[in-house]
Amino acid sequence: MPRITMREAISQALWEEMERDPAVFILGEEVGVWGGTYAVTKGFYDHFGPQRVKDTPIAENAILGAAIGAAMVGLRPVAELMTINFAFSAMDYVVNQAPKLRYMFGGQFRIPLVIRAVGGGGRQLGATHSQTPDAVFAHFPGLKVVSPGTPEDAKGLLKTAIRSDDPVLFIEHATMYQVRGEVPEGEYLIPIGQSKVQRPGRDVTIVTYAKGLELSLKAADELAKEGIEVEIVDLRTLRPLDMGPVLESFKKTNRAVIVEEGWRSYGVGAEVAARIYEEAFDYADAPILRVAQKEVPLPYNRTLEQAALPQVPDITAAVKEVLK
């Protein structure tokens, strides 16, 4: 199987879907001539032309509003938000329009829209450009929220998202574009709404996704040296949330740590822990612990920023804690 980066995986998914379906087009800031601020759409403008790789003004409401309108009349726009933080400038479209127009008009409209947004901290961009607000968006019924942790999942999930008739927020982590992984040869799709065991183990269940997966895999290697075998369940999709593999794993290990990059309060970990307690309370041998970002706006200074973000030692410590 070919080994490619996350950037290449996302780029391949877009390219393949644009080749496959003329209704698919990209719009956003610097997606065309520039080639994408994270170089995901490099070469697209020359191949597909200005109509299908549409540069926009710096106007998030225009980008997402126009994408929704185009989706309503049968196109399949992939709107790129340079960072997920800019979604707040157009929050109305992400949470108030795209997820509700179908329901509110009695099922008359389809919104086959993908919003690709780059999130995550760790690049010293300061507090307003470094957030991991995934849980905010996952709160809203009508939206699907996907955030992959491997190139294989990124490619397969993005292709599915583009073919979906519902709006999908596809969150990519800014520090993961160089992460390499194997992807299957040729065409493949991965369903939205399916969690996956990324590493089997018997002692503790780690539930995570995206950047948390990268960190958890490293933690798992370290813990293995001490004879602790963690099982890592990757959510991959935050809404709809697939608790099946999580509960199956928890019923085996009876202990869980949830790792997310966003803030702990009202976060993904809170949701997952609540659901485990609701569905499998009798299986718990220890309180479920959460590893998450410190409750501060992310600082610029590298040392302080890294101190605020979850790190591998935080995960290994939490795993040992639930094993006590």
């Binding site: 989706a71 309503m72 049968g74």
Partner: peptide, 10 residues
């Protein structure tokens, strides 16, 4: 209004 622009873009 931006949605209207999108209908026209479509």
């Amino acid at each position: 209004l931006p949605i209207a622009a999108g209908l026209a873009l479509g």
